[in-house]
Nucleic acid binder design. Structure first.
Lengths: 237, 237
DNA sequence: GAGTGGTCTAGACCACCTG
DNA sequence: AGGTGGTCTAGACCACTCG
């Protein structure tokens, strides 16, 4: 575990942002301050800050400084949920309902993405959630997590109700990229009931594979979206 | 027009990749070579290469070199079409049909994204294309280009049949990010006919706004996708 | 005018890959 | 062993922001 200097600074600053020591809109210490405090050169400081920019934690402004961005914005890029963005943009309120307690399962015969032997053997923890904007159900989400974490997610309470935050705080696991396949489908009965649609109404369906900073650990999701009222937004940079 | 050194090198290398001087899998000259040839320091060379990595033109390997990636992969990140990816992955052949010659139009009363006064006054050039995989129509695409380019896109032949390539070669305009809204809709009669679906069948619909390296120049698209056979893939990093 | 980030120089040592 | 990219040092000048 020999991290380069710039990674250490990067992780330190990220932690300080995530724990609220620096909040949205705050300025980080200047590159010069950081250089003096950590006894490294400005090049190295800049390397650390470049990473944080790439990850969306800060943006930089010439003559001003490094400005902390909101975590919503950060997630927005990755999540593609539209959920948080929609909620944020419209000042509606978002709500997530656990359809049932998370449970262990094997992967079934035909999982939507290929699995490694290790993943297959461990089975997975399944989470079924319904996400709403105000009182409108918008996303029905099935999440599949390989059961390879100790002590296991089943026993843990979630930080802030958020799976990603829990993984980050408890296991240092961070999502670094997402691959997804998107389709338009007619709603099946289960989907129709939860999303308050008629059967056969068009729904947006997304298969997702999340890559993390652990090379052998992935997350999987299957999402059904009612886009009648709210579209799903995303940004590519 | 005072470009920093690293931008110049970045653009030179990009041009050489796009024109095939360096092809997929080739190694770029080493950082040391580039430094000597261009009389700049390695730091500056690395800055240029970092940009190309970010844009997906190359990937770097320690002990090996900077390897040129395929342009398909590159576009894949931005395009979100799934079109080229699907075609590439399955070794089917892609085909684009101009439904009619491009034509001038005002924007209509309710364009899907807000427009600047300058854009409104100029009107737009419209392109209607149908993209197919083998013989299956997959994407019906309407593209709207503000009519602010001289001599105007209407008179120009397209490079490689590609709008993006034409903009890059003729005007030095490059797309740098995309904002989009995605929905599932029932097919209307026009869409149904072109995509060979029944009316009311679910189609994926995407509104897109492309941001370019010209701060005041955007492109707009509206896409209808038949996802019955081919899903739309995308990657977030 | 003082402080900030943006660009750049001229070196250095390391880990990794390949012959 | 020699070449590659990865990390890092210790400086410099510039353009921009703000009081």
């Amino acid at each position: 575990m020999k991290l380069p200097q710039y990674r250490k600074l990067q992780h330190l600053l990220k932690k300080q942002i995530l724990t609220g020591i620096y909040q949205e809109g705050d300025l980080l210490p200047s590159e010069n301050d950081l250089r003096l405090h950590h006894q490294i050169t400005r090049t190295t400081v800049r390397q650390a800050l470049d990473q944080l920019v790439k990850e969306g934690y800060i943006r930089k402004k010439k003559g001003k400084g490094s400005i902390v961005r909101s975590q919503r914005e950060t997630l927005g890029l990755l999540s593609f949920h539209g959920f948080s963005e929609v909620v944020k943009a419209t000042e509606h309120t978002g709500y997530t309902k656990w359809l049932k307690p998370s449970y262990w399962n094997d992967w079934g015969n035909t999982f939507f993405y290929p699995l490694s032997e290790k993943e297959k053997k461990a089975g997975c923890i399944c989470i079924e959630r319904l996400r709403s904007v105000d009182t409108d159900p918008v996303i029905l989400e099935y999440t599949f997590i390989p059961n390879v974490l100790s002590p296991g997610l089943l026993q843990l309470p979630l930080v802030d109700q958020s799976l990603f935050k829990t993984l980050q705080y408890e296991y240092n696991i961070e999502v670094i990229s997402v691959v997804q396949d998107v389709r338009a489908l007619p709603a099946n009965p289960v989907v129709a009931i939860h999303l308050e649609l008629r059967e056969q109404d068009p729904v947006l369906h997304i298969y997702r594979k999340y890559k993390t900073n652990r090379p052998d650990f992935f997350l999987y999701s299957s999402l059904y979206c009612n886009t009648a009222k709210y579209a799903i937004g995303s940004v590519f940079t």
